[in-house]
């Protein structure tokens, strides 16, 4: 009897933890097979490289967004931080700073932006949606002011390697993303940080009562988000060889979409970085497949919306079943 209960508990645990990712992975394989039948170029290595390159930014930002949403928060300002930090980096390069120092300044800008978001959200206790939608406008406006709304061109040749180069056949942007995914997964599953993010999402008061410095951890997740937004800014600038003040516009929406599709609960307290990785690849592949088949871009948006609704219904199925 006790053994039966144990098996049931382990099954429940497995279902809750891994089933959404397994479903997503199966969906990824099915899509891969179907699209490869409709387009002969889809499975060519250069196209696969293209998909990995296109998906890299969404997945990269998805890692920090997964942690932010898991902690019960939201960061709508990532696209604006990416633009602001890349513009400051471009201005630093043009002012004669070395590439390394300019990249450091870029990451510093991302860190400060994240720190501002985190401080207002945790120490002044303002809703993350309100704070980050405000800073979305502020950081974007600062970017436009600094550049007089014109793109900045002209970077050292070696800078383009980050966005356009490849190593052992894989795009460097995707290798950076994979590194961040591994770091994020270890952080989430192997350190207390991940446990605290889950606790923030569903029982913040419990952490306070065991004496955890709640504000410090809360700020750190927005700082992490700001740093990854700055890294995104570096990759985007390197890819386009231009620091565009409008770069990363609406990027946050795509990132939030893949995070939710990956099985992270929008209410917080449940997350999967591997799910975010699979969802990012699936989205990238579907977009690429639709383009390959000559389908107009507005149908791509329709598809993204439909998949998202389907994913949310799937993740809420337990509650819907209980309700009925």
């Amino acid at each position: 009897m006790k053994c039966d209960l144990q098996i049931k508990a382990v099954n429940n645990h497995f279902k809750k933890k891994y089933l959404p990712q397994i479903i997503l992975f199966v969906l990824l394989i099915i899509s891969l097979v179907v699209i490869s039948f409709t387009s002969p170029y889809f499975l060519k290595w250069y196209n696969i490289k293209n998909i990995l390159d296109q998906s890299a930014i969404n997945i990269l930002l998805g890692v920090s967004m997964t942690l932010v949403i898991c902690s019960g928060g939201l960061d709508l300002s990532v696209g604006s931080i990416a633009a602001l930090s890349s513009v400051v980096m471009a201005l630093a390069i043009h002012s004669g700073f070395s590439l390394e120092i300019s990249i450091f300044i870029c990451i510093l800008v991302g860190t400060i932006c994240g720190l501002i978001n985190g401080y207002i959200i945790s120490c002044i206790n303002i809703n993350p949606f309100i704070v980050t939608i405000s800073t979305l406008w502020i950081y974007r406006a600062l970017t436009l002011v600094l550049t007089n709304s014109s793109p900045i061109y002209g970077f050292p040749n070696e800078f383009s390697v980050i966005g356009s180069g490849s190593f052992m056949g894989l795009p460097i942007s995707f290798i950076i993303t994979l590194g961040v995914v591994i770091f994020g997964t270890v952080l989430f599953h192997k350190t207390k940080y991940g446990k605290y993010m889950i606790a923030f999402g569903c029982a913040e008061a419990s952490l306070k009562r065991v004496g955890v410095s709640v504000n410090l951890y809360k700020i750190s997740v927005y700082v992490f988000s700001g740093i990854l937004a700055a890294v995104t800014g570096i990759i985007l600038t390197s890819k386009l060889n231009c620091a565009d003040p409008l770069a990363g516009y609406m990027l946050e929406m795509e990132v939030i979409s893949i995070v939710i599709l990956g099985g992270t609960s929008i209410k917080g307290g449940r997350a999967s970085i591997v799910g975010t990785l699979i969802a990012g690849l699936l989205m990238g592949m579907l977009r690429n497949g639709l383009i390959m088949n000559g389908i107009a871009s507005y149908y791509q948006q329709l598809l993204v919306g439909l998949i998202l609704i389907f994913a949310v219904i799937l993740s809420e199925r337990d509650k819907l079943c209980k309700g009925s």
């Binding site: 446990k195 999402g201 569903c202 008061a205 009562r209 065991v210």
Partner: peptide, 9 residues
């Protein structure tokens, strides 16, 4: 309210 975190083991 026990101050437990429901989503943690």
């Amino acid at each position: 309210n026990l101050a437990l975190v429901d989503n943690l083991d």
